[in-house]
Design a protein around this nucleic acid. Sequence first.
DNA 1: ATTAGCACTCAATGGATGAGAGTGCTAACA
DNA 2: TGTTAGCACTCTCATCCATTGAGTGCTAAT
Lengths: 350, 350
Amino acid sequence: MAWDELNERKRFILKSIIDDYIESAQPVGSRTIARKHELGLGSATIRNEMADLEELGYITQPHTSAGRIPSDKGYRFYVENLMQLHSLTEEEIEMIRQAMDEKIEEINHLIQKVSTIISNVTGYTAVVMSPQLSRAVIKSVQVLAIDEKRLLVVVVAGGGIVRNRLIRHDSVIDESDIAKLNKTFNILISGKTIDQVSMPALNQLPRDINVPREVIFPIFEAIEDCVRKIETTDFYMDGITNILNYPEFSDLIKARAVLDFLKEKEIIHQMVYESSKKRQLDFKIGSENEYDEMKDLSIITTVYGGEGKNYGTIGVIGPRRMTYGKVVSSIKYIRDLLNRELVRMFGDDL
Amino acid sequence: MAWDELNERKRFILKSIIDDYIESAQPVGSRTIARKHELGLGSATIRNEMADLEELGYITQPHTSAGRIPSDKGYRFYVENLMQLHSLTEEEIEMIRQAMDEKIEEINHLIQKVSTIISNVTGYTAVVMSPQLSRAVIKSVQVLAIDEKRLLVVVVAGGGIVRNRLIRHDSVIDESDIAKLNKTFNILISGKTIDQVSMPALNQLPRDINVPREVIFPIFEAIEDCVRKIETTDFYMDGITNILNYPEFSDLIKARAVLDFLKEKEIIHQMVYESSKKRQLDFKIGSENEYDEMKDLSIITTVYGGEGKNYGTIGVIGPRRMTYGKVVSSIKYIRDLLNRELVRMFGDDL
DNA sequence: ATTAGCACTCAATGGATGAGAGTGCTAACA
DNA sequence: TGTTAGCACTCTCATCCATTGAGTGCTAAT
């Protein structure tokens, strides 16, 4: 696995094989390499080198008389040592800029838009986790009387995040009591971060308040529910059917199996989450994935957001034969845009 | 197209052909009919009848030496005169009950859940439009000061529908002014239905109010925005990839074309909307669809909700060779459940 | 160390062939 | 007059087989 295991020439040949295979989806033979990449070497020499590379496990032969294709180990070496980052094309940048242009104030909509952008730009399946907001600050908690029978609880957190919940009740409640309640909530809850919030004890409420327990408790519940909703990370996928565009899935059975697996959002979510905990930029190539159904797919994920506190993940799922270089460039670019946008939205709140 | 065009026997044979074809996806021949359905007729007789049916345009032959398959006209006659409604199986009912059991307070979540149920029960693609709420009643409009620089506008409509929008500003605003503003809004706006709402003129606001125009106008805008969000019908699809389960789409090219088309949510939304305006229970079979890409698909839609005022649509997209009887039974059942649930949520508000 | 040359392997391609399913038509039958 | 058995005919589909072509490994020459 070490860089030194392969000399300069072997590395060059390996890179050529993988670049070619990524482009053509066909096993690549010695002659192709000899011709395409000016090396001053005959095909026989390359054949010998390829035999070595196969011995070392970087490439394999689908059958005796075919060319070589990269193994997972080959891809791994490629993404760590060989691949080139491409800069995005004018059109891609323009496309992203246009999509991002529309101002969005609700963070989850932004995240969803980002997932569409990723799948459009890369042509693969996008996976996006909304930021983990456990360190977001509660700005305000408000109870509103909608009519005689209903209260609305609204919780606002930094970054323009608003969650609400409606409560029905059968008591008669005075406006002034609600005002007192709100004041108390804002003293006790506002300013705390999501993970520090706790409901006040009953004896912390003003004595002179005239709201029955049958209403107080649902209000507590509603607040907790709103907080939980803010804390929960959402997970979006987009462009799942994109994998049908790649010849490795022209077998209907295979394609169906993969699509069915990708529809299990919970599992994918978990995988992406695990990846994001490991490395800022993480690859899982083919059978490096835990699940058998993923053995022909690769996942690339990268973390966006603040320094170690409120972060989320964006990434791409595609065939093992992915255009790793292009994808990495693209999601890095999009990640940076997203970061900038989040700073605009959240400012210092995050 | 008239019922009388076909005598009893022809009708029976047509029904047999279609039932068989729906089940097997194979052209059905005269012998199969003679054997399977006890008719006391030889295959030659049936062959003659089938020749008549073909002449009349109800069935066609894919090629000379194959059996017959239903034409669109055949299917149309079938859904209007021949198909039998099945009652749901125990398991299906149990499955639906379980899925519906979880209490949901937000209408769009309910609708989304329904689309999942439909696609699970039928095995086809579900399409669901949320109710058109232009007659929903505005219950309350509230402006809240979150901190010195931000206001939150909250609009509550009947049925527990809440929409909000955050506003940034740079003015110093007094609590009491906001209270006055709220009072005015609630006098002028609350109680009106969505389609009657209009923003108050500036001179309708209290004279003694001390809120600058730079803040008033964004508030108006925000309210309008919230109202628009309530009015907008959402559209959900679920189980798009289900069509891959059917042999007519085992051709990757065809499958891709159809999937790509179904991803154009706007177009499908429009189609469903048109259907729902026509008939309480509407079928579009094969080339009855406006779009070429849909010529191998059928759509069944049915309207749910109140009497002509706030209604939405649920439906199914599947191969032309759909289990029409089962699907109609299923979506009718689900529609009734949904109606009941909406009454529970909205009560008289809707 | 490199390479030209050659024998060998294997997948893919494109007929040719035969089986099977189904039809239409005709003549016989009730 | 309606029904049916029988038969020749058509068309698809699966199978077999020979051919082609890409690519390899090995050997001997450079």
